[in-house]
Computed example of a mutant assay.
Amino acid sequence: MSREAIAAAAARFAPHDGAFLRRTPLWKLPGAAFGVRCDEVWLKLEHLQVSGSFKARGMLNRLLAQPIPGAGVVVASGGNAGIATAAAARRLGVRCEVFVPTVCSPAKRARLRELGAHVVVTGDVYAQALEACLERQRATGALLTHAYDQPEVVAGAGTIAREIEEQGGRPDSVLVSVGGGGLIAGIASWFRREARIVALEPELAPTLFAARAAGAPVDVAVSGLAADSLGAKRIGSIAWDITQQFVGDAVLVPDGAIGAAQRTLWKEFKLAVEPAAALGLAALQAGAYVPGERERVCLVVCGANVDPATLA
């Protein structure tokens, strides 16, 4: 993935700023605000994105870059990619069908239906929903939007890194949650080796960590707090290639630390975010990643499709 592809995605987005996509805020706070011994903690507030997650960038880029057939678009998702695809499809006036596993939260299913998507609930995990989705795509000829493993999707995610650099300069490190890997692949493709990119995964969904241990992508069992948003059972092929080049650290974070970080973000900063979005703070607070005292650490707060009542 090239920086040119990411810049092309950003240019493609320009006519749709505001209604289809947002330039999300970047907060810069002292590390002490989070009880962390580092110079600054930056929060890229991508949970404020249209459709409630960073997925809006990749899904919109895919739809804008490809001709959309009469059958519309189809996607398999734990929730967020489906919501993003449905939101983009609605704005473009095309049909959208979304396959989700049973682990997809009721809040995300309700949001999909609000956006006018036809929702099919099938399988216990994302991989099973994807199998059904691919079968449906072959039958209808609809445009397939993959949750994380398509070049346009990765390039769209990479515009986050470009935006961070435009808003605040280059951080020393960027902590990125990993499921299938589209987000980290895009961010690493932009920063390359000019910032330290750290992959964060729940202990109960270790796709990249397991792939590195095996020397190649492998299937893993997926469960735990973040299973609906980080529920891929295997790291994507694009992410595997890019992380091999540009990502040195892959860190596992326990569910207890993720839940605690969610509550901190809600109680202290009034940020209602889903578990995947709290991994960065969880890694810092649990000591899974220890920054230098003069380090500027950027956390990608990647999604907000959660019922705030669960955070009280």
Score class of each variant (00 low, 15 high):
S2Y: 08
R3D: 02
A8P: 06
R12A: 13
F13K: 04
F13T: 02
F13L: 05
A14G: 08
A14R: 15
P15W: 14
H16P: 02
H16E: 08
R22S: 10
R23F: 08
T24R: 03
K28I: 13
A33I: 01
A33R: 13
F34S: 07
G35P: 03
C38T: 09
E46A: 06
L48M: 13
A56V: 12
A65S: 15
Q66M: 14
S77D: 02
G78I: 02
A84S: 11
A84N: 05
A84E: 11
R90W: 00
R91Q: 15
C96Q: 04
F99G: 00
F99I: 01
F99W: 05
P106Y: 09
P106Q: 04
A107L: 12
A107M: 12
A107R: 11
K108G: 02
R109L: 01
R113V: 13
V120A: 09
D124G: 14
Q128R: 11
E131P: 06
A132N: 13
C133P: 04
L134R: 15
Q137M: 08
R138E: 13
A142P: 07
L144G: 03
T145W: 01
H146K: 10
Y148F: 15
Q150W: 05
E152L: 09
E152C: 03
V153W: 01
G158N: 06
G158S: 09
G158Q: 07
T159N: 11
E163T: 00
I164Q: 07
E165D: 13
Q167T: 04
G168R: 10
R170I: 13
D172V: 03
S173G: 03
V176S: 01
V176T: 09
V178S: 02
G179L: 05
G179A: 05
I184S: 08
F191Q: 00
R196I: 01
I197R: 02
V198G: 01
V198D: 01
A199G: 08
E203P: 05
A205I: 04
A205S: 15
A205P: 07
F209H: 15
F209K: 13
F209N: 13
A213G: 12
A213C: 05
A214Q: 00
G215C: 09
D219S: 12
S229P: 04
R234G: 01
I235L: 14
G236F: 12
I238S: 11
D241V: 08
D241Q: 14
I242R: 14
I242Q: 12
F246E: 00
F246T: 04
V247M: 06
A250C: 15
V253T: 12
I258S: 04
G259M: 07
T264M: 12
T264L: 12
W266D: 02
E268K: 15
L271Q: 14
V273S: 10
V273N: 10
L279M: 14
Q285R: 15
Q285T: 14
P291K: 07
G292A: 09
E295K: 11
V297K: 10
C298V: 06
C298H: 05
G303H: 04
G303W: 04
A304K: 08
